[in-house]
Design a protein around this nucleic acid. Sequence first.
DNA 1: TCGTCTCACACATTTGAAGAGC
DNA 2: AGCTCTTCAAATGTGTGAGACG
Length: 883
Amino acid sequence: MLGVEMYPSLALGPQRLNDCYYRDRDVPLYPSTCEMAARALPPALLKPHANTETPAAPQDSVRMELENAGLWKQFSTVGTEMIVTKKGRRMFPQLRVKLSGLNPSLRYILLLDIVPVDSSRYRFQDNSWQVVGGAEARLPDRVFIHPDSPATGEHWQNRTISFHRAKLTNNTLDAQGYIILHSLHRYQPRVHVIEARDVLMWGRAQHSFTFPETQFITVTAYQNNKITELKINSNPFAKGFRENGMNCKKQRDARLKRKITSSQEECLDIESCDPCDSTELLSQSVELPSSALSIINTALPITDSGFHTEVSSHPDQTDSDQTLVIEQAFLTSEMPSSMESQQQTTSENNVNNALMDETGQMMDLSGYTSSFPTPQLSSHTSVPQSSSMYSVVSSTQSSDLELPRASSISSPHSMPAYSSLPSSEYPGMNSSTAMPASTTSLPDSYPSISHSTSSHLLSSSSYHSLLPTDQSQDNLSPHTPTNPPFQSISACQGSRLTIDSGQNQVDDGGLSSANATTPAVPNPTQTAFPFPPVQPTNDPDPTSPPCQSIPQSALPYQQVSQCNQISTPSDPNTTPTAFPFPPSGQSTPNSIMVSSNLNTTVFPFPPVQQQLNLSTSGPSPATGSFPVSQPSGLSTIPAIPNPVHPTTGSFSFPSTNAIHQGPMQSVPNTLHPSTAYTFPASLPKHTTPGPLPNPAPTSYPFPTPIQPGPHPLQSLTLPSPCSIPNTTQIQSTFPQSYHNPSFSHIPPQMANPSQITSQSFPPLQTSSAPQLLSQSLTHPQCPPPSNAYPAVAPTEIGTFSQLNSATPYLPDVVLHPSLLPSLDPSLSSSAPPSLYNPFSSYSLRLCQDPRSSLHLPLRHIYRQPQHAHGQGSYFDLGGRTVF
DNA sequence: TCGTCTCACACATTTGAAGAGC
DNA sequence: AGCTCTTCAAATGTGTGAGACG
């Protein structure tokens, strides 16, 4: 989404240039309607990335570490919940990262966006998060620009970067610029690093980072008591609710009791006592609290000690509560499809361990890591911890936790999804195993799961097995489990791989998972979706394991959707089933879901123009089938809003990432010839905004096994742990869009490599691609480390960039003038605005507090409209731009 | 009836202004 | 006059619980 190449000249008339100012030059550079620029993406005009990339750019080595990964993991172990309110709520834990590998002299912009992890709506039932239907229409994505942006690489690298000022809201009409999210949906924050000079060319020198443990479910009120406790004990603002706080439950209950008692006493007094005897009443009321308190204490065991004691002490957190549900359950509706649910139960002790220090402060990474044994990490992955940005954060966690899980698989109660999976061996995964008939059974003990098996067990598991990080991720963060619809997605992201790899390396501190036990699923038939719903491992294809292994949860929504696309076609035989389509209530529909019985694919909703194409040339509403073989199939791959291809009727994605997108012809038709997209009869509705009925929980679409045949991309995206050198390499390989899901606009088809055959990607025939493919085929599980990524030639960057043609959705972009670099004259003339129609529907709203980054002479500009509150993270500029 | 959401509340923290002192 | 430090009030952030809504 961020891979929007800004061509002001294209969509914006010169007259608008005055609206934006380049802070350093004090020169009006940018059209006020930056949104237009973002929407107008001329794919054809895009230059190959390779050409644009600066040679030996330091960005290749850009790495990001989640500083407070330990805290995040604590939450993810339980199932992170984020409060969303109308007025906006900050995130906690905060997203704090550290950057390295930046060019100290260059300026960078840091962006935070939050994308849906899947297309499901969740409900907290039976101490676990379960899918209850399809996601609501995706809202216009907004991006929070770090207040320091743009800043030099030195600046970013010399400090901890915190996005604590970013606020989440569920107010779809929010005018504050906050990030709008749906409640009870699962989201994945992403951090993007973009060279400031590339603002006009987003997607070129950008790096996206996703930390699986930062996934969360939005809520308006906390559902899981454990989360509440964690928040109270971790968040300084909630100190009042701690055991020793004045606003703790004990005190509150005491106050309440006092009030009640006093009122009762008053009544009694009034009735039976002399009204004049006020002193007695007063004394009683005063004494009552103590007694009441004792009573309360009895009823509600509360420990005096710090957080640890509190956690353990909580009666509510009985075994059932304590257990963290990581279960993976396959939702079985009519289809064999079943939701793979993984229940992970974490003993309070684990939680306690994971919790913060006595002061209640967030455990810093160091402390957290210490708890996790690192040695295993090495065994899992050859990648050095240092190599992966993510690894530092999460690496520790994985090893310990993972191993236990693997063993659990063997247990009769092992997660159905896992058990159902084919052989424990990664390569051995069979399609048959992919879909367990019933996912109801859950592993008795979480720890039991064996490391090797873990990959199989989890839809994403395959990846886990390959990459210890994922496993750890799964173990630590239930969130990681991918949703059935998106399982294929995971494979697509190269960036994720890097992250995961890193994860494994980090020592978790073992917060959690070691003790976690997975309670049996109460309702087997139900589509119980453990908080982090585990992505079902539908893919029977042994060759595609890498893809499966990758946890979807971590994948950005866009990527996911893309992957889904691929998966969908995989099952041509499946009859179309009811699928939740994200109704596009808004002017700009976000995504389209394509589903078969087994598979539900969420497509970024194409721009209006694209929508038209879909409605007109897309699958007939009656049949709902969308033959891939059609010429349009090609168009589907690249997201091309460009009217140039309106006749194709192909399903195209918004080309927000024009930069990444290559020429149309360059984009291979990823769709498998045999496969056909099945569009719901209601698909045409998508063109018109309107809520679609959510599928019944039972009908939760489950991805069907995909045809074997790893795609070159697949190999790239899902390199075995050994193959992944490090994040740096990966980024270098996929510097621009590909490495990062968010930016990588890999064609949806490519998202699911398993479904895609090598033939489907002619463009990939680049020298590197074949190698990768061969490797993946030869060593699906663990290609030789030496070859995997190193083999990729720098030139491939351009190749991949081309592949990234389609962006799932085009975010609403509101650029702050300060962020806008001077216009490149060459760009202005490159494409006529008329050629690329703006897609108003996909606007990316950038929010930041520009003050900090502004030079003094310009600060006054932002002072006036600034909000009253001191922090003033958001700024409204001219009514158009919201910062 | 249930699930979800909104709001007011109390408390803690943060922020910024004002004043004092050097 | 300028700077630093302290104090204080307001703003802000937080979870809770009651109530409203569908």
